[in-house]
């Protein structure tokens, strides 16, 4: 890839900070599983308004959040039933 050759050339000329944002990563370090666009940058990504790492918030949070929310919803319904049952029991 030409961009990688440019980064290598910049390194050779002494610009050590040159890197590609969004391309040429190992699979486990890819941004959000691959971006489809990339930039040749020379400063940390936060200087350009870009996050250092990126994951899909849905992939990262959906299952845990849904499990907690549904669990809490069912728990609340059960707690309501329990409160009613105890209140009635005490009345008798």
């Amino acid at each position: 890839m030409q961009a990688e050759r440019r980064v290598a050339e910049l390194h050779r000329r002494g610009v050590d900070g040159a890197y590609l944002y969004g391309a040429a990563d190992e699979p486990e370090h890819e941004l959000a599983g691959g971006l489809g666009a990339f930039f040749l940058l020379t400063e940390p990504p936060e200087r350009y308004g870009l996050p250092a790492e990126a994951d899909s918030p849905i992939q990262e949070n959906l299952v845990a959040a849904t499990a907690a929310a549904l669990g809490a919803g069912l728990l609340a319904a059960a707690a309501a039933a329990l409160t009613f049952a105890t209140a009635r029991g005490r009345q008798r």
Binding site: E4, R5, V7, G17, Y19, Y21, H29, L41
Partner: peptide
């Protein structure tokens, strides 16, 4: 051509 993994290492270092 860049060295194998050199660009990926630079990406990792800067990020």
């Amino acid at each position: 051509e860049p060295e194998e993994g050199a660009v990926a290492a630079a990406n990792r270092r800067m990020r």
